[in-house]
Design a protein around this nucleic acid. Sequence first.
DNA 1: CTCTATAAGTAGGAGCGCTACATATAGCCT
DNA 2: AGGCTATATGTAGCGCTCCTACTTATAGAG
Lengths: 112, 112
Amino acid sequence: MKPDALRGHLDALLLATLDGRQLHGYAIIEALQQGSGGALDLPTGTVYPALRRLERAGHVVSDWSTVGGRKRRTYRLTSAGQRALNAERSAWRQFTTVIDGVLGGDGKWAQA
Amino acid sequence: MKPDALRGHLDALLLATLDGRQLHGYAIIEALQQGSGGALDLPTGTVYPALRRLERAGHVVSDWSTVGGRKRRTYRLTSAGQRALNAERSAWRQFTTVIDGVLGGDGKWAQA
DNA sequence: CTCTATAAGTAGGAGCGCTACATATAGCCT
DNA sequence: AGGCTATATGTAGCGCTCCTACTTATAGAG
C-alpha cells in the first residue's frame, strides 16, 4: 500500500485502535500491524506526532508510567474522542460509498 | 465530506472518470458531481493541476479543440493510464479492506 | 560489549489539495 | 449598453500531513 494513502484517515485509525482500551504509542503501532494483517506498519515519526495532535485536539489524554524500567505514555479516548471516532466512522462509510461508486462505475470491473 | 480525505485517491477518480471516454476538464468535474450524487464538487484549482500531473506522468494525453467559441482541452487515457487505473482500483480495494478491518474491529459497530 | 527489542521523540522535506484570483467567450435579461 | 450567469482553463501560494532520518534511553540476549 502506498504510504500516503492514509492521509486524512490516520486519526480514525488511531481513535479506533484506542476504542475500549488504553495503549501506549508503541503498542498502538503493534496493534495496527496485527489488526491490519501486517499491511499497516506506521513509522514512529508518523504516529507520535499524530497522537500529540489528537491530544491537542482533546480527543485523547495521556498518562506517563514506567514499566520494566522503560517510560510509557499511555493514551485513552476522551468522550470528545469517542464522539470524534463515531464521526470518523460514518465519514469513512460515506467516503468509501462515494469512491466505490465512481471507481465501480457501471459494473465494468465490479465483481462483488 | 472533509475535503482532504481525497488525498492520494484523486488520481484514481480522474482516471476512472476517463475510462472508456474522453472528456475535457470542466466536463470531468461535472461527471464527478453526477457520478457521486453531488458529494464531489471539486474546485478547478484541484482538477486542472491534477490533470497536468497525470499528463506529465504519461497517464493521459490531451488535445485542444474549440466548441461554440470556447476552447476545450480534451483528455483521454493512455495505455499506461489504463494500467495505472487498474492498479489504482486494486489498491483501493486493498486499502478499504484494511481500513474497514481496523475501524470495524470486533463487530462493535459493524452492521453490514 | 555489542546487538536487538522496547519506547519516545524531533527536524526537515515533499507533495497535494485547497482558496483565491485572473482570463475569456456565449447567451440571456433588462 | 451593461451586467450577470454558465462555460472553460489556468496560476500563485498556503497549510497540512505523513514521511525519512536521526537522537535518546533502558533491558536483555549472545
